[in-house]
Design a protein around this nucleic acid. Structure first.
Length: 258
DNA sequence: ATGACCCAAAACTTGGGA
């Protein structure tokens, strides 16, 4: 089974590339983030390719989905005890069971800057993610959380750590939240880079970040032992970051032998 | 080659992204 995660930065803007990629990469399940569309506005072309879709979006911001051609059951929108921001629920998590694998597609809050209310919200949100994972990953069933975590797990996961003082994505509390997920039994499934030595998944649109390979690894696959033990390959499809009409994130592709 | 940011809303700018 081939499972992928991709922050598409607007599914409407990315639709031609997404459809072409679904046909060429042939994933069975795809976790998407930053749809930037409402649930009802999810483009029908994806279903016409043979995918069932669990979408969760409210419009301009955020939005997540799971696409599957191996079944889509027990869809859940939102985490257990999920916090709000400015008293509003945000569409950042959707769960589903696909071909016997329990999956969550997540778009972790950015945090903006340490000390900002959005940063505290990010940490609360990650605690709710941990609680949801504990509730769902105990059994033998393969389980994974895939998505844009907005955290670089180590200093090696950014191109120049010296540029990240006073920045989110690399702070100790954010990394402690990832450690808590690992302590809950999940493993960071680190993909291969298809070029250069680091498996970055995000490169800013500005300042020639992609040609310079000034990237970050922030799109992660956190899997329980049953899922992680079945991984036969994992890689970052950096070809999708190239050219006109690219997202600023590349897909992470995981192959499982179940 | 991969090339100097992109997206969507109600907009002709602005907030958000990281």
């Amino acid at each position: 089974m081939r499972i992928a995660t991709w922050n598409v930065n607007s599914i409407a803007a990315r639709l031609p590339r997404l459809l072409a990629w679904l046909e060429s990469a042939k994933p069975d399940v795809v976790c998407l983030q930053e749809l930037k569309c409402a649930t009802d506005a999810f483009p029908p072309e994806v279903r016409e390719l043979g995918f069932e879709v669990a979408a969760y979006g409210l419009g301009r911001w955020n939005g997540v989905a799971i696409l599957s051609r191996v079944g889509l059951e027990d869809v859940r929108r939102g985490l257990v005890d999920e916090p709000t921001f400015d008293d509003a629920a945000e569409p950042r998590a959707v769960g589903a069971t696909c071909g016997g694998v329990r999956l969550w597609s997540v778009y972790v809050p950015n945090g903006r800057e340490p000390g900002h209310p959005h940063y505290a919200y990010k940490l609360r949100w990650l605690e709710a993610l941990r609680g949801t994972a504990v509730a769902e990953s105990a059994a033998d069933r393969p389980f994974a959380v895939l998505g844009d975590f907005n955290i670089a797990p180590t200093d090696e996961d950014v191109w120049d750590i010296s540029l990240f003082t006073e920045s989110t994505h690399v702070t100790e509390p954010e990394r402690a939240a990832l450690a808590a997920l690992r302590e809950a039994g999940l493993t960071d499934v680190v993909p291969r880079a298809l070029k250069y030595d680091k498996p970055y998944t995000y490169w800013d649109y500005r300042q020639l970040a992609f040609p310079k390979n000034n990237g970050m690894r922030i799109d992660l696959v956190y899997a329980n032992a049953s899922f992680a033990g079945a991984v036969s390959d994992a890689y970052v499809d950096r070809e999708e970051r190239k050219g006109k009409g690219a997202s600023d994130h590349a897909p992470v592709v995981v192959d499982l032998t179940l």
